[in-house]
Structure formats: C-alpha cells, structure tokens
C-alpha cells in the first residue's frame, strides 16, 4: 500500500468504537445468511413442488404424447430429397406444411391440464439447469 494512504488513514478522526459493535456485525451477518438460506430452501421447495405437480398432471397423458413426436420414415425422406433436387421451393413448402400440420396435431393433444403441466415442468427444469450452470461458472472462475 502506498505511503500516502497510510498518512490519510492516520489523519482520520478516531472515534470510539460503539459498545458491542463486533457482536452486532456478526449477528447481522448470521441473520442475513440464515435469511438467504431459508429463502433458497423455500424457492427450491416451491420449484420441486411445481415439478412434482407437473409430472403428476402429465402422467395420464404420457401414452398419448407419442402422437406429438414427429414421425419420419425412410420413404418420406427419400421423397423429400428427390423433391429438394428437382424443386427446392416445393421441398421447402413441404417442410413448412409438415411443421404446421404437426403443430395442429400437437394442439389437438394439448389440453389445459397438459399445458399447465408443461409450464410447471419447464420452469423448475430451467431453474435447476441455471443453478447447475452457475456452479460450473463458479468452478471455472475458481480455476482461472
């Protein structure tokens, strides 16, 4: 530390330390940490509960969800490749038609309960993934 900093520090007025200051600071820190711990725990419990509720809501629909997975066959791929070579615009339109048709099919499968379930699953999953990513970043910073 430079000498001028020592001079400045030594010229500061010395006030008497309030009674019990270290104890108060320590107590405040402990209270803050406890509050953070409880808030983190409460958030985790809420997200876990949401994910469990989402899983419970989606469970009866799982067998029917097979219909929302796009079905691709070798014949369809071959036909599409042939079309792409002969007429790219028509091939692109075929893809768009396929996507729109698939979206309509999905809409038929998704009821309000399933939509709510998907939201309840997506949010905790993203939150948990973000927490793990933060861990990775902290680890990288530690290594750096």
């Amino acid at each position: 530390m430079p000498d001028w900093m020592d001079d400045l520090l030594s010229s500061l007025p010395s006030e008497p330390q309030p009674e019990g200051l270290p104890f108060l600071v320590r107590a405040r820190l402990v209270a803050e940490r406890r509050r953070e711990r409880w808030s983190r725990l409460a958030r985790q419990v809420v997200l876990l509960g949401a994910a469990a509720l989402g899983a419970w809501l989606v469970a009866p629909y799982l067998p029917g969800l097979e219909g929302v997975v796009p079905q691709v066959s070798v014949e369809a791929l071959r036909e599409w490749t042939g079309m792409l070579l002969s007429s790219p615009a028509a091939a692109l339109r075929m893809v768009l038609d396929g996507v729109v048709g698939w979206a309509f099919g999905v809409e038929e499968h998704l009821g309000p309960a399933l939509i709510l379930a998907l939201v309840l699953i997506a949010v905790p999953a993203l939150s948990a993934a973000a927490g793990l990513v933060r861990d990775v970043q902290k680890r990288e910073e530690g290594l750096a």
């Binding site: 998704l110 939509i115 997506a122 999953a125 993203l126 993934a129």
Partner: peptide, 20 residues
C-alpha cells in the same frame, strides 16, 4: 449430464408450448 437433461426437458416443453 444433469444440465443437458434439464435443458432438454425444458426445451421440449417450450417446443410443445410454442407450437400452440
């Protein structure tokens, strides 16, 4: 693996919701 699984589940849900 856990990050990939969680992201994939979340993205699958987002894909289905976006198709609406």
């Amino acid at each position: 693996f856990a990050i990939g699984l969680l992201f994939t589940v979340a993205l699958a849900a987002i894909i289905l919701l976006a198709s609406l």
